Amino acid sequence: MYDTLVTLKKGAGRTLKAGSMWVYNNEIESIAGDFENGDIVTVHDSDGFFLGIGFINTRSKLTVRLLSRKKGTVIDDAFLEKRVQNAWDYRKQTVDTGCCRLIFGEADWLPGLVVDKFSDCLVVESLALGIDRLKPAILDALCRVLKKDGIVIRGIFERSDAKVRLQEGMERYKGFISEPFDTKVEIEENGVKYIVDMEDGQKTGFFLDQKYNRAAVQRLCKGKKVLDCFTHTGSFALNAGIAGADSVLGVDASQTGVLQAEENARLNHLEDRVKFQCADVFELLPQLEEKGEKFDVVILDPPAFTKSRNSIKNAVKGYREINLRGMKLVEDGGFLVTCSCSHFMEPELFAKTIREAAHGAHKRLRQVEFRTQCCDHPILWAADESYYLKFYIFQVCEEQ
């Protein structure tokens, strides 16, 4: 069906054969046939065995991303609508769909595409040339699928402004796909209301991957004094407040984020108990320790300290430092909530870093819970890149 043939080197493609969807440039022996980057191609092993079909881009280190492993598959509107329907059916069974991630790239077998739903609006992020070509058909299919369940999409905004698009030979883009609409949308999650800024917020405007982790924190916070570090737009802080915390301090280095967090606090009538401060967390934690401050619950939800394997050493130092400082601020018997959203900070390394921080702080940890990303960001086994969020709750105790 697709005449351009990509043939792998002998012994190459081990991760692909184990279930991954990527063919790297250094795994390819030959490309036979005329093609343009973004076209659909067929992939064979060195012995001619069919491995799948996907889209090609020779400008990218990820030269081919598979769309299907079934021989004879045609990538047409019907194929794309089935992919979208499967993704939506999965969300309906597993997650609150008022606001959720509808498409999560490779984990929904639509590599390079992210679509988030905030109430009746969609935010789209396209990171690969091939999926960019298919994007209009996918979005049309998504609107049709949602309409069958009575959900009419009011507007679609694109946030394809990540630097990785440059590696695909594409320009970064941010703007309306639909007719213009108000891109500040109110959502509700776990009983907390937020204003999501789809146009100017981080990533797609709101971090949906912590949805049920935020709910898990609620039961710890009633009547407690809470510190929420790297609060962004206040999500963990507001969950603590809605659960009945006596006082909450949310800290973030972004003044824009703090202003949005304060607006969200007012939206939930929590401004009397949930306060926010613009500060560098690395500087603030030692200052709070020096003042003798203590909290019943300390939450650490930092941005990814590393986005490549080359910077892991510095990331480990950062995670160790904030966890050590955070533990020192927890009252004896209180709780530390700590997480990493970096794929390259592997679970074993993150756990080791926390253990080292506990040793340095002379604290004993009792693990309450370990969680990962919300189920609308499914972890596709054999596609390691789909697993990135590690989330722990510990009770912090003095040395016994």
Rank of each mutant, 00 (worst) to 15 (best):
N314I: 00
D96Y: 14
A304T: 12
G33H: 02
P111T: 07
I75T: 02
A357M: 04
Q367C: 15
P302Y: 10
Y173I: 10
Q287I: 10
L238V: 02
S68I: 09
F335P: 03
F104D: 02
L16F: 07
I393Q: 11
K82Y: 03
Q255W: 03
A265W: 10
L208F: 03
I379F: 00
G98K: 15
V164L: 14
A382Q: 15
A304L: 02
D280G: 10
S30W: 10
G72R: 11
L110F: 05
E179D: 15
L127C: 11
L336P: 06
D252I: 07
G201W: 09
D301I: 06
V6C: 01
R59N: 08
S247F: 11
V316Y: 03
I242H: 05
A245L: 11
I56Y: 01
L380H: 01
I322A: 08
I131V: 15
P303R: 11
G205L: 05
E186C: 05
K71A: 13
A358E: 04
A141W: 04
V330W: 08
G54A: 05
N264K: 05
F282G: 02
F370P: 01
E289R: 15
F35P: 05
A12W: 06
D45F: 04
D228G: 05
F157Q: 10
K135C: 13
V43T: 07
D252K: 09
R14I: 07
R65T: 09
Y388R: 08
S386G: 08
R83N: 02
F181Y: 14
N314Q: 14
R69A: 08
K174S: 15
V274K: 14
E36V: 06
F295W: 13
E168K: 11
V258M: 08
D149C: 03
K363Y: 01
G48A: 07
A216D: 13
G223R: 08
A243R: 12
A265D: 11
Y194L: 09
G205F: 06
S308Q: 10
K71I: 08
G11M: 03
R165M: 03
A245H: 09
D332I: 10
Q85Y: 04
Q202E: 14
N86S: 14
I354C: 06
V226N: 04
V64A: 02
A351K: 14
R371K: 15
D200G: 04
D116K: 00
E171Y: 07
F276R: 09
E283I: 07
I242Y: 02
K291V: 05
D228M: 07
M1C: 07
E199R: 15
G334C: 04
I195S: 04
A358R: 04
C143R: 14
E27H: 06
G52Q: 09
Q277C: 14
R83E: 03
H377E: 00
E29Y: 13
L51D: 02
A261I: 06
L67S: 00
A265H: 11
D120W: 00
L66K: 06
G201I: 06
A361D: 08
V396C: 01
R144P: 00
L5N: 13
V251H: 05
L285G: 08
L66Q: 02
K313W: 03
T372P: 02
V330H: 06
